Amino acid sequence: MRNTASHILHVAQPVEGGVARVVTDLAAAQLAAGLRVTVACPVGGTLTDALRSAGCTVVRWDATRSPGPGLPYEVRQLARLMRAVRPDLVHAHSAKAGLAVRLAVRGRRPTVFQPHAWSFEAAEGLVARSALGWERFGARWATRVVCVSEAERRTGERHGITATWRVVPNGVGTGRFRPDGDRAMSGAGPLVVCVGRLCRQKGQDVLLAAWPEVVRRMPGARLVLVGDGPDADRLRRDAPASVTFAGAARSTAAWYRAADVVVLPSRWEGMALAPLEAMACGRPVVVTDVDGARESLPPGRAPSCLVPSEDPAALARALTTLLRDEPLRVALGAEGRAHVLASHALRHVTDAVTDVYRELLGVATAPVVGPNEGRKCITT
């Protein structure tokens, strides 16, 4: 009997930021490896265009970012999509897609859930308790829960979520993110760059609170916030003249290469892509000492690279220390690049996720014939 490639359905919401980049990278790599890949997601954001550029089949799934009164319709729509697409395995990305997929599938086919940071950490009070209660219950309908860091897995276990876990740290394309030495965007004065969605999770408000002290110690220093999000207007109101809001960028590599230091002052993370991308570009990073973020740094990380969360004074000291010490920045940049090449190259991620699929589908690898000859794929 002729072997046929397994069909993977990725379901994603949100459709921008780190989750969109992870889904795009996985889909592109799996297509190149000979798998059949379809992605269901809402319109908007950057995800649909990026997927279609990679040659991926995209189907529309109308879903809001957070649970609401439209959830029953979203689940029914997703169930209809699955009957039409007929995937062998479903991979749900982030809390909203994970909620809808597990309600639609209910364990009737192999299901991978990837939280990309737990939803209950982003909420408070009744909302947080409800989100945690769902994750405890819904774990029974995930054949595997894939976490992007050991810390994310431990957080799930600590909160009473019983699952079959797999940890697959995030990875980045080290060809796309590389130290080209192009500083054309840097201009005059030291430059600090923060890439991330403008929201409470990413902590740009803490960075803006720290920034006047950085400028006092380093006159002429400039800060660029790359990204968009719900806190954009509020953050702009509080920002001094030395801060630039660059908006969402289709490609962030040029901003990393222009920076003297890249910073991500998150309140919580699964494992953010921005520090990995910056290190791949040979730039030193400063991150907060929260789950996932600390795990992205090289072992034996320099104290100047890790600061307490929600501590503007400590953040200002760390940024100033690095801006004043060029040899340290160069050394940390080289160390970070080597760390990403060894532990966070994109191929490591795609291979590890493929191994998860292989386990769940109970299949072996076989050579792909035709244009992709010499690669491997999962076959049934």
Rank of each mutant, 00 (worst) to 15 (best):
R21I: 12
A316D: 01
L31K: 00
A79N: 07
A188W: 15
V172H: 02
A84Q: 13
D238R: 15
A232V: 08
Y73N: 14
A79T: 11
V349M: 11
P169R: 01
R109S: 09
A258N: 13
A246V: 04
R347C: 15
A272S: 13
A258L: 11
T64A: 06
L346R: 08
F137H: 13
T164E: 10
R106H: 08
H116F: 03
G173H: 14
P212N: 11
G160P: 01
G70T: 09
L31Y: 12
W255C: 01
R178D: 15
A50I: 13
R375I: 14
T380F: 13
A254Y: 08
M271C: 05
A253K: 03
A316N: 05
A40T: 01
G336M: 00
L47F: 05
V58D: 03
A313H: 11
T24D: 13
A352G: 06
D180N: 10
L126C: 15
H339P: 02
S343F: 09
S94H: 07
E124K: 14
S66T: 10
A254H: 12
K96P: 01
D351I: 10
L126V: 14
R222D: 00
V101P: 04
G203V: 01
V353S: 07
D231Y: 15
T57D: 14
P371Q: 04
T57R: 07
G300W: 01
D289S: 09
L26R: 06
Q30F: 03
V145Y: 04
V43M: 13
Q204W: 11
V167W: 03
V58N: 02
A188V: 06
C194W: 08
L78M: 01
V168M: 13
R166V: 13
A342M: 10
L361H: 01
A100Q: 05
D25Y: 09
A92E: 01
E295Y: 03
H93T: 06
G229P: 00
